[in-house]
Write a protein that binds this DNA or RNA. Structure first.
Length: 476
RNA sequence: GCCCCCGUCGUCUAAUGGUUAGGACACCAGACUUUCACUCUGACAACGAGAGUUCGAUUCUCUCCGGGGGUACCA
């Protein structure tokens, strides 16, 4: 759904068209305020903006179909008066029974029975208290159109049954409202999921009728986007975690990364290239270049693309965007940069260049900087970090503690510390670098993966460093 | 059943009537690094099958196979 919005948006921006956002809430049972809010929040977060429609207005409103019933009633009446639609009294049970009796498969669909009802028959149905639905009369000929993505598509005559546009109770259906609104809102390009492909011939016919009764000027161009697949060979649905935008955001996707990845699903900006900005996408995007075959959502690739975009952020931007994640993880005191303490900002600013190149999601920042921000005197090593502590850890820590105790506060600097420890542990102590620095890193960060060691030592300072080394040694 | 769509490495894709079929992610090996990450080098890996057109098909056509969607008084 987001990918569809993205392609529509990119196509509209590329062609300097008008992007219209309309809500098709004709099935009010399943359209909730909550789902609308989520859609809007998602688009806003992504920066996908529209020119006319919900919340922004425009010349062809209202943009909620639930507020346009009078319009649909009027058009339905015109279609009926012109003879393009007719009253249908058949219930689905009756249709199924007739199909069965005639030896047709159950899935054959509507048989056109009510097309030829006489006035007497209709009157009889009404006398029974039955009310008619309104059906569109499909012509007995092949229907073809040129899909923007798939080329010419032809449907054989007779393969699309007459379809209902208004329920017996007067409720208009999507089959009517969608083409009517597209006509009234002067939509000339429709990009939608390929699941709507087989309903397109019905709409082609509808446009012909709408033109004849003066409601539509043109038939829009259609482009049917391929699905995005999830696990196995199933279309991604709203329930799948992969399609949950907010979940991705929670994990630390930034909009640039997610948008870039989504764009890659069915489209390519050019040979040997897959990282780009939305401005570049708009500049290059042409629906006709979209591939027709479905793509699988690959979270690993998405994450890798996200990492590229995180690295492209300015340091300041990176920090500001990270703060909400840090706050959520209890690592800092506020959820926005300006409300942080001076100490927090100082530490984070120092840590940024160390952390930014090694996270792929903003959610990973907390783990990287937690030990730098905290003044705890002991950090229990994570299990995988503890595994890195070899038998020599105890001796190494002793040596490190005695070496570092000697360092005056004013000389507690990255390069100096590096030099001192290398001399004491590696050159004089005879330990391999891996064995020498491993225990120190685990003591200071508690993790197997951490920002560079000596920079970290400088950031947390002498007292905390020594305390952590001492306490790890006690807890070996 | 009928109608429609789709088919290049595991995944996303590029290109082409004649190429060693390219890139990215993932994976594996190596270099760098105190670890991890970043970066770099290398390895692995694809035109679904069969006919036809052609001097030559991954590319054009057809058939088949495989996958998907539709066949609603849902959208």
């Amino acid at each position: 759904m987001v990918r569809t919005a993205l392609f529509n948006w990119a196509a509209a921006r590329h062609t300097h068209g008008t992007f219209v956002f309309r809500i098709e809430d004709t099935d009010n049972a399943r359209d909730t305020q909550e789902s609308l809010d989520q859609i809007i929040e998602a688009l806003e977060w992504l920066g996908i903006t529209w020119d006319e429609g919900v919340n922004v207005g425009g010349p062809d409103g209202p943009y909620f179909q639930s507020q346009r019933t009078d319009i649909y009633k009027d058009v339905a009446q015109k279609l009926f008066d012109a003879g393009y639609a007719y009253e249908s009294f058949s219930t689905s049970d009756e249709i199924a029974e007739r199909n069965k009796a005639a030896g047709r498969p159950a899935a054959f669909g509507y048989d056109g029975y009510d097309r030829t009802l006489t006035d007497e028959q209709k009157a009889a149905f009404r006398a029974e208290g039955r009310k008619p639905a309104l059906r569109i009369k499909m012509p007995d000929e092949d229907i073809a159109f040129d899909d923007l993505i798939r080329g010419r598509i032809e449907f054989k005559a007779g393969s699309v049954p007459d379809y209902v546009i208004v329920r017996p109770n007067g409720d208009p259906l999507y089959t009517l409202t969608n083409p009517v609104d597209d006509a009234l809102m002067r939509i000339n390009v429709v990009l939608r999921g390929e699941d709507l492909l087989s309903s397109t011939p019905r709409q082609i016919v509808m446009y012909d009728y709408l033109k004849k009764i003066g409601v539509a000027q043109v038939t829009p161009l259609f482009g049917h986007l391929p699905y995005v697949m999830g696990q196995g060979n199933k279309k991604l649905s709203k329930r799948d975690p992969e399609s949950n935008l907010f979940l991705h955001r929670e994990h630390g996707f930034i909009r640039e990364g997610l948008l870039n990845y989504l764009a890659l699903l069915g489209w390519s900006i050019g040979p040997d290239r897959d990282v780009f900005s939305m401005d570049e996408m708009i500049e290059k995007f042409d629906v006709r270049d979209v591939k027709a075959n479905p793509a699988h959502f690959d979270i690993d690739k998405a994450t890798a693309i996200n990492a590229e975009h995180i690295r492209m952020l300015t340091e300041d931007d990176f920090l500001r965007r990270s703060v909400p994640y840090l706050f959520k993880d209890g690592v800092v005191s506020a959820d926005n940069w300006d409300a942080l303490t001076g100490h927090e900002r100082e530490v984070l600013t120092a840590a940024a260049p160390l952390v930014q190149p090694r996270v792929r999601l903003l959610g990973e920042v907390s783990g990287m900087v937690a030990s730098l921000l905290s003044d705890d005197e002991y950090i229990a090593p994570a299990p995988d970090a503890r595994k890195q502590l070899k038998a020599s850890a105890d001796e190494v820590l002793t040596l490190a503690i005695s070496t570092l105790s000697e360092v005056p506060e004013e000389e507690w600097k990255t390069d100096h510390l590096h030099e001192l420890l290398t001399t004491a542990l590696v050159e004089e102590g005879g330990y391999k670098p891996r064995l020498a620095f491993g225990p120190v890193r685990v003591a200071v960060s508690g993790r197997r993966v951490s920002p560079p060691l000596f920079e970290s030592l400088q950031i947390i300072g002498k007292d905390v460093t020594l305390a952590r080394l001492t306490n790890l040694q006690k807890n070996l």
